[in-house]
Amino acid sequence: MDSSRVAVIFYSLGTLDLLGAFESKTTAAERESWRKWLWEQQTHGIYGTGFKPGPYMTPEGQSSESSEYDAPHLIMTYTALLSLAILRDDFSQLDRAGILAFLRACQNDDGSFSALPRGGESDLRTAYCAFVISSLLDDWSGMNVDSAITYIRSCISYEGGFGQAPFGEALGGTTYCALAALCLTPSTPSSPRESRLTPAERTRTIRWLSQNQTPSGGFRGRTNKAADACYCFWCGAALNILGAGDLVDRNALATFMSQCQFKFGGIAKAPSERADPYHTYLSLAALALLPPSDADSSWDLPKLDPLWNASEATASWARAHIPAH
């Protein structure tokens, strides 16, 4: 997990956040040291400022200066910023201008974003992270918005979902990324927000998403695949973004989630699999967004911001504390 450590941390902290367990399960001293550790992953260099996954490529005796092989990573930057908001950081150490420069270094000519300034994967996941970061900073000068939107639209598949990249098969996770990104960006003269999905495309996407809720109650990520807890969030939240969250059979969804719960705690991708932080967090996020109607209060979870994928309290904290310019 060296190369995705901050992401794993985000899913773990996010789980505590959604369970409202921060005050009871962690101490102020722990939270303080975690914030410190996360800020140590903010690194500056010729490609601007961002967060790296951890210190795994950082030589002893050196910390904040990034080298080419110890560079900031787009997905880690998104998950680090949200983790800091969960930890109620004051963001006084945030290098706004550096992060915007980093986003510009990651954007490619076709509008897509690479995970790293010089390479790495470029697909709708990295695009989504760039959009959320811009939205968190409330500053869109770190990207060419029009070309980014053109790239996102080029990933629409005939089935109604979005592939991971152009030509790709429709996939639940990247459909969420695309819809959230299109929704996060303010209108531009050449791309008013309401023009970004035609009515026919919207209908087709809703149809495909709802087709993915399987008889098990869980969602699958692709046509004819098996249900997986993480797609309950990706597809359910995508429907929610399209204003069609009420098409989900929520009680069946909750039944599936409860079957995915691992006997020693946590939630797995499917019944009788092993739990992990990623599936645990996303399952709780799905339940927070699409709670069952017939459950007792033990199922109550805080409200979720469906576009940033964080509790509303955490999202408000970020809005209030990330310094403006």
Binding site: M1, W34, W37, E40, P59, E60
Partner: peptide, 14 residues
């Protein structure tokens, strides 16, 4: 050989 940077107490130590 250069050991990995050890700063503040690690979060999610490996």
């Amino acid at each position: 050989p250069i050991p990995q940077y050890q700063g503040v107490d690690a979060l999610a130590p490996i």
